[in-house]
Amino acid sequence: MTFGLAPSATASTSRPLIPAGASDRLARMLAPAQWAAAGIPLLRDPREVVTALHALHRPTASTAVVAVLDRDERVCASASFARGTASADGWVHRNALLAQLRRVVPHDLRRRSPTRTAVLLHCRDGEGRWTEEDGAWMWGLRDACTLHGLRCGAYITLTDAGWQVLGEDRSGRRPRVGPASSAQVDEDSWELPAARGTVRAG
């Protein structure tokens, strides 16, 4: 037999119910202020990076493109993939990004400090301003970079209005995202010959 006080009706209705796992999910998300405080390095020429990735992958609104930049901020490897179902859990995005990074570049975990930088081009409908899903992608990018020995770089949204580097006041009208295709987006990867001795696509 157990004894205890049953919760009152007023107590149960005055407190908001938090779904199971919601606090963990919120912990795997970065707000713009947190992203800015993380010391993410600024791109010297974000337009050049966005233009290069757009030319390589021709992304639609259902695509994400993760790219690795060398010391001179040239794209040395990149991968585009279907974003899948919208999610505000950074863990989901971290795993997706890590899988793509492992496809295109070896890890740099043996180095004392990262020499290459990973950036993410998140292509979607709507406005370019921050959403909870963006916060989850930011968390995922930062964590994937840590696990792969890379420096975490810029997070860029690409919509039909143009591109925007979140956390910075830099944007442009071109290039823009292409219309979402009804067909499933194929995974596509690209790398310089110096990266692994081959160039792959498709």
Rank of each mutant, 00 (worst) to 15 (best):
W137L: 15
T85A: 15
R71M: 09
L158G: 01
L158E: 00
N95K: 15
A82C: 13
R124N: 04
V68C: 07
D134H: 13
S113F: 14
R142D: 12
A161N: 05
A144T: 11
A67D: 03
C76L: 10
D125M: 07
A55L: 12
C76E: 12
A96V: 12
R58T: 13
L121S: 03
L69F: 06
Y155R: 03
L98M: 07
G128E: 04
A82K: 01
V66T: 10
R151S: 14
A52L: 05
S62E: 12
L53W: 05
R47S: 08
E133T: 07
V50R: 00
A67Q: 04
T117A: 05
R47A: 13
W139I: 02
S78Q: 01
E132D: 15
T159V: 03
R112P: 12
D108Y: 05
C152G: 07
V92S: 10
A82H: 14
D89V: 09
L98F: 08
G162Y: 04
A118I: 06
D70K: 08
H93E: 07
V105H: 08
A86Y: 07
H54R: 02
C76S: 06
L150D: 03
A144R: 07
M138V: 08
L141I: 10
A88M: 15
A64Y: 05
V66Q: 04
T146S: 11
L147Y: 11
R110V: 11
S87P: 06
H107C: 06
R83W: 02
S78D: 08
R112M: 11
S62D: 14
R94Q: 15
R103I: 08
S87N: 14
P106N: 06
C123A: 08
D143W: 10
R71F: 05
L121K: 05
C123G: 00
E127S: 13
T115L: 13
E48A: 14
T159F: 10
A55R: 15
L53E: 02
R103T: 14
V50H: 04
S87H: 13
R116N: 13
V66S: 03
A67S: 15
L120Y: 07
C152P: 01
L120S: 04
D108E: 14
G126R: 09
A154G: 03
L121M: 09
A61W: 01
C76V: 15
C76N: 00
I156R: 01
A86P: 15
A144G: 09
